[in-house]
Design a protein around this nucleic acid. Sequence first.
DNA 1: CGAACAGTGCTTGTATACAAGCACTAGTCG
DNA 2: CGACTAGTGCTTGTATACAAGCACTGTTCG
Lengths: 239, 239
Amino acid sequence: MGSMAQTNRRRTSRRTIYTTLRRMVLTLELPPGAALSENELAASLGVSRTPVRESLILLAQEGLVQVFPKIGSFVSRVDPAQVADAQFLREAVELASLDDLPAELDAGLVAELRENLERQRRAELGIEEFFALDEAFHQGLLRLSGHGSAWTTVAAAKGHLDRARRLGLHETAPPVFTDQHGEILDAVLAGDTASARAAMRTHLRAVFHDIESIRAHSPELFATDSTSVPVRRNVVVWE
Amino acid sequence: MGSMAQTNRRRTSRRTIYTTLRRMVLTLELPPGAALSENELAASLGVSRTPVRESLILLAQEGLVQVFPKIGSFVSRVDPAQVADAQFLREAVELASLDDLPAELDAGLVAELRENLERQRRAELGIEEFFALDEAFHQGLLRLSGHGSAWTTVAAAKGHLDRARRLGLHETAPPVFTDQHGEILDAVLAGDTASARAAMRTHLRAVFHDIESIRAHSPELFATDSTSVPVRRNVVVWE
DNA sequence: CGAACAGTGCTTGTATACAAGCACTAGTCG
DNA sequence: CGACTAGTGCTTGTATACAAGCACTGTTCG
């Protein structure tokens, strides 16, 4: 999907619902396999089925939701194949961007990255806070090479990867990743593209490796057959 | 966006309409800037607004359509920024896949690629026929390295690039690209990753370069301000 | 007691009605 | 003759009604 900057950012019910649902799915607040009834969601939100349904259709196109006609809609289980795809995609893009770094780095962006890194080092960091900083850090690196807008596509494609990562963050502590971020940024600032590539690859693969370990712990969150219908569970949605 | 393999492939009005509209936009049968009235489309197709509207929402998320509330929906003009993003993305992905080629290539896939190349060499090839072969060729190369499913994301992101390429195909004759395809495949089959990367990069950039020249010829098809509303034209849609 | 079966409630897909607002046009007034 | 203004038709956004079908449950029959 290209950047979703097309439709005017007018405040509309659908946009609000879509954004909120998407966040809840990515943060696992809506766990993989959870049933998403259009009627229930509409009632909870005090709107009609229409904007809810349209939001679910968009989420289905992103692969975050599965819609089974006349059966139900469900938060998709984490699909290992899509996780691997997203991993390959982001690695390819982020490594390629390092080859396009300009001789003179944008000072403002560099300062932004440094400050981001400082925040990552704060001890009392929550998982979601770390995740937001991590996202901004990687996008910032892309912006350094002038490919910041390409992050939109990567971000849209890595929904399954992100959910797996959130599970993995309980395995490996953020400080490990923060240190790796530091190594990458140091190499970039030193103009050492080769080292930057190596550090980036090591970092991204470390993240990916964690996912495999979590899969053994919580296999029920992962998909085995992408066409199978999840067990209908009563998940209280939206409070 | 992940693979759109989620929702069951049940034959539904929306899926048919979405697929058809998407094809018409990508082939420029629906030119950039064309007005797409939900009511008109629904009447032409003999369905209600609902499936048409849902299709337009999906196309809007892909960036192929722009929806302006209470003004109208339009085929988006080719956005140079999105073209550049897609170019960067596909180049990163296709080059990275060459690094993951296995020692033993799948014989069936190799045969498939050879046959594809043969068909590209046929003289009486139409533009759309060449384009389909080109797509299959590049996806085939990704499948060689086991990353075939990642093509779905790339394909979804390169809508603007594809439309620009269709304009460019009138500039540079397909045979040039076909020869470049041959060079890439030869290097891959010879196990020469470095040469394959070089050939691939040359090929993809040649394609990209054509786009710049076409922009001078038909500036009205390209976007200048992505928030501006296109001039309302009477474009006869759907026959 | 077990298995087949009909019924019922829920699901999503589609059609239609209403709401709110932009844009153009025709008319009027200065 | 020009500028402003009210009106009208179109647009998309949302709400609601109906259609078709799967799944579970309770019942009934062997």
